[in-house]
């Protein structure tokens, strides 16, 4: 387009403009190629997951418990184990995360040293490698008792979930306008009443989102469960004994040299990914509506 302008007005070609245009073309190509590569690679992951996972997925894979290779076994106890452990983890992490988030937003003013310390620590916890959380819980809840337990696994998952809940709770409560707190106080409501019945209620959607995101993060975690709930080939509903979980089972089965175990690992991987993606999509849809 600009070339025609150049020729008709009798301008000399501007080498700088030409250089800029070349750089622009190069950068455009670079951006497109990079986006193309990233999208292709991610599509390849999803495709591998879908094609191999669907091949291994069957009613038996979901209904039957784990078993020795070649015995048409399934993943039922691992699925149930994962559900129990993530549920227990949320049961522990939600009150703690809510309490801490409320403290930080309602009592932790800028000058409060303790609050800024807690805020920093919660940030650190959010980025701590998850395997270290597993090591920590092993030393606290496994080594002293002499055996692995589902409870230890749940605690490890809870430690990973807490900082996410803390962060979203604090952020969401801070969005509640001060006038609402003042209105509550003017009506004679005590501070805890104002916090719980006014602030927390109006920030409900955001806080729930945080809890759901924590659930999504925790349900695919493998490393913290390796040394805590260990895994179990059989049905077990006791929190005091080792319990199977989907991610750990995937880890054990994917490296195995039995074809049916590898297939089950892919089926399990598909289930975990679909679960995590479903939660994330639900969060997104509800955020758009609310």
């Amino acid at each position: 387009m600009s070339e025609t302008v150049v020729s008709t007005t009798g301008w000399k070609p501007n080498p700088r403009a030409a250089r800029r245009r070349r750089a622009d073309h190069l950068a455009t190509a670079f951006g497109m190629v990079m986006a193309g590569i990233l999208v292709l690679v991610l599509a390849s992951i999803l495709w591998t997951l879908l094609s191999r996972g669907l091949a291994g997925l069957s009613a038996a894979a979901i209904m039957k418990p784990m078993g020795p290779p070649g015995s048409s076994s399934g993943l039922a106890n691992a699925i149930v184990g994962s559900l129990i452990q993530t549920f227990m983890a949320l049961l522990m992490a939600t009150p703690l995360g809510l309490g801490c988030g409320i403290y930080l937003s309602e009592y932790g003013t800028e000058t409060n040293k303790f609050a800024s310390c807690v805020r920093f620590v919660s940030d650190v916890l959010m980025s701590v490698p998850s395997i270290l959380v597993g090591l920590f819980v092993y030393q606290v809840l496994v080594a002293p008792f002499g055996h692995f337990s589902a409870l230890a696994g749940s605690v490890a998952l809870a430690i990973l979930a807490v900082p996410i809940i803390v962060r979203t709770t604090e952020d969401m409560l801070r969005l509640v306008p001060t006038s609402m707190r003042e209105a509550g106080a003017a009506l004679g409501a005590t501070r805890w009443r104002v916090t719980l019945s006014l602030c927390l209620r109006s920030a409900k959607t955001g806080v729930l989102t945080g809890i759901l995101l924590a659930l999504a993060r925790v349900s695919g975690e493998t490393a913290p469960l390796l040394f805590t709930s260990l895994g179990n080939q059989n049905w077990s509903f006791s929190l005091n004994r080792p319990m199977a979980s989907l991610p750990v089972t995937i880890y054990q089965y994917a490296g195995a040299s039995y074809e049916d175990w590898v297939q089950l690992a892919w089926a399990g991987a598909l289930l975990v990914t679909m679960g995590v993606l479903a939660i994330n999509i639900a969060v997104r849809v509800s955020a758009r509506r609310g």
Binding site: P95, L96, L98, Y107, V118, V121, V124, L125, V140
Partner: peptide, 27 residues
């Protein structure tokens, strides 16, 4: 109840602090 509430949420904040402290110290 107000004081109790304050103590409760402060205690959960303290617990978060203790967990990370424990993590570093035990390691």
């Amino acid at each position: 109840p107000d004081t109790a509430f304050h103590l409760l949420v402060a205690a959960s904040a303290l617990l978060v602090l203790v967990v990370l402290g424990g993590l570093v110290v035990l390691m």
